[in-house]
Design a protein around this nucleic acid. Structure first.
Lengths: 145, 145
DNA sequence: TATTGTTATACTCTATAACTATA
DNA sequence: TATAGTTATAGAGTATAACAATA
């Protein structure tokens, strides 16, 4: 629209809009798949954050999810009801409850990972080279913590 | 990690993860800015969808937001309370309520648009050429409706 | 009968504050 | 007193079902 060589001041805004739209669409699709696995978006995200090989306190999960500790309680409640996670009192500090991913939890994590890759189908119109360009460009986007 | 020339089967999944993370971070930042303008994320999105030059039925807004009509009612309630939108009964079909963006609504839309561009600051590490590459790659991503 | 907008209701997500049990 | 987890509560967002007014 503006001059061809002019540095388009709105380019960043345009890309921001694209990223928001795509992120939204991706989220929609992912949430639908996750629901078919019997999980809500938030519980799926919580389970994805847990390292099956390194049980950690609920407090750490709150940090990873960037939310209040009080929110973690109902999330872990549901994961525990579903048999995907176990709460264990830490013998060294009985205030702490360690979150352990069960075998069923590991299998669900694998399923979630697969779903994520499948949702990448919206990238279907890009060939291998274009995908690499896109990945490298996205890697340069500074994500504020 | 795999062979250099091998078509990485996980590339799409990796990019999907990047897009989700960036989309989430963008959303967080945007929501915070929007809150400073006195709007919730959903009302801001609703206002952004409205064309100030083409008043349309509430039903159309539900379609644009891809949500149920019943959700539109409280959103428009708040936009109307804030003086940003007006409901007008359509004389040609008295069932329909047309949503009109007020002058204050137009100014808020402009502010929202500016906020979107400012959130593009997370793209700061990319130069003009890289931004163009990114934009063109994102344009090829097929957004499912 | 069908459609527009609304109301009623429910569930999820997230935030703050107060509580308990440990330390 | 400080911290980990919980409970209570509230607001926002979104879904379904039922309703009134209108077509």
């Amino acid at each position: 629209m503006a001059g061809v060589q002019a540095p388009s001041p709105d380019l960043a805004g345009e890309i921001t809009g694209q990223l928001l739209d795509i992120g939204y669409a991706l989220r929609q699709r992912l949430d639908a798949e996750v629901a078919r696995l019997g999980l809500t978006p938030a519980t799926a995200r919580a389970l994805s954050e847990l390292d099956p090989d390194r049980p950690s306190p609920a407090r750490d999960l709150a940090l990873q999810l960037d939310c209040d500790r009080s929110n973690v309680t109902p999330l872990v409640d549901r994961l525990e009801e579903a048999g995907l996670v176990e709460r264990r009192v830490d013998p060294e500090d009985r205030r702490v409850k360690t979150l352990v991913v069960t075998e069923a939890g590991r299998r669900m994590q694998a399923r979630l990972h697969r779903v994520l890759a499948e949702c990448g189908a919206i990238l279907g119109d890009l060939d291998e080279a274009e995908l690499r360009v896109l990945r490298d460009a996205l890697a340069k986007v500074a994500i504020p913590q």
